[in-house]
Design a binder for these strands. Structure first.
Lengths: 206, 206
DNA sequence: ACCTGAACACCGTTCAAGT
DNA sequence: ACCTGAACACCGTTCAAGT
């Protein structure tokens, strides 16, 4: 047995990743297993460990591809360089649309947890950082007088906010009488937060 | 075999839940298994299914207890009826502290996912709704002139925001040069969002 | 009625053995 | 060198059998 050599290592890696994406898209991260992946590509379990360190490694690589997809969508949403206040809303809207249409792939990014103590590879955190930077650029343009620290904080607050809304919205924890709650809640966050950010009032709220 | 009757059904349920809480506290949700729970209380696997429908049922009951804990902490934080702007910040701070100290129990609430199509029991969603209501009460006091719909939306936006910050913060996705990012990001969200909410400007941000 | 423990259908991971 | 498939140590869930 062995030595079929129908695919190079790189090809094997590629078709395994594609099969994993399909499984996640169809059944969610919980529907993924090493045995299911290899059975889809006509190999046996052992082969998977020739090209991936373990299942976590494979999942992380799938998630990196999802992050790339998301990044491309976000970039496309502001390709025509709208004014920053418009761009920020476009980014938020695109993130929400992505979460709503690519739900299972998007969810997999957050559902997957490494064993305690392990950290994702640099290539993964790199891609996450790139997403934050897109928001930071627009915020910096919107409020050039603010410090980089303030911009960084604001990007993270807004991003976390939109993300939290998508997560709780998916879990149906935002239901409120009538209408799509995710959209309305996100609009509320953006409107009030940006108003406070752009036009700080001298009178405090307490 | 069988018929030991050392515990009533209710006692068995109770010690199983306690063992499950211990396991989650020590090892996280991923470290929980039916066999580990029963081995801690001196029973065998089958017995677990006398008192729980399945593992999901047990986990949901553990999570409901965690929600009760959180509710109690939040209520204690505003027991002396501070002015609403102070109360809102106290609630957010208490939520963050809970996530930071009871990390694994808090995480388990969001990590656990029912099979697609299944919904959590009413008793669970009830408890989540009660948490939102605490925020809504304070926001209504802060801005009595606003519509209940607006208040509901705002409570969800703020709650999701704080929650998103805790989730991304735990995943180390908020790291920024120096200091505890979760705290600073949350402060940013609260300050600007509340400023925009309380003092809406006539000039739009776009 | 209560509880066991074997059975079933799954997991992830490893590795000797075959080509 | 590549790949298999059995083996190991786990899962959740069911249920006949024992007391």
């Amino acid at each position: 047995m062995g030595r079929r050599n129908e695919h190079t290592r790189e090809e094997l890696r590629e078709i395994a990743l594609q099969a994993a994406v399909e499984l996640i898209t169809e059944q969610g991260l919980a529907g993924l297993s090493a045995r299911k992946v290899v059975s889809r590509i006509g190999y046996t379990v052992g082969s998977l460990y020739m090209v991936f360190r373990n299942l976590d490694d494979l999942i992380i690589q799938v998630n990196e591809r999802t992050l790339e997809m998301l990044h491309a969508r976000l970039a496309a949403a502001i390709i025509d360089h709208p004014p920053p206040a418009v761009a920020i809303r476009a980014l938020a809207q695109t993130y929400i649309d992505f979460a709503l249409t690519e739900t299972r792939r998007w969810l997999a990014i957050y559902q997957h947890r490494l064993p305690e103590g392990e950290s994702p590879p640099e290539s993964f955190t790199e891609k996450v950082a790139q997403l934050f930077e897109m928001a930071q650029e627009q915020l910096a343009q919107l409020c050039p007088w603010r410090s980089p620290e303030d911009i960084a904080l604001t990007a993270r607050a807004l991003w976390s906010g939109i993300h939290g809304i998508c997560i709780l919205g998916f879990d149906h924890k935002l239901e409120v009488a009538g209408g799509s709650p995710v959209q309305a809640v996100a609009d509320s966050l953006l409107e009030y937060y940006l108003a406070g950010f752009v036009h700080p009032t001298t009178s405090r709220t307490r």
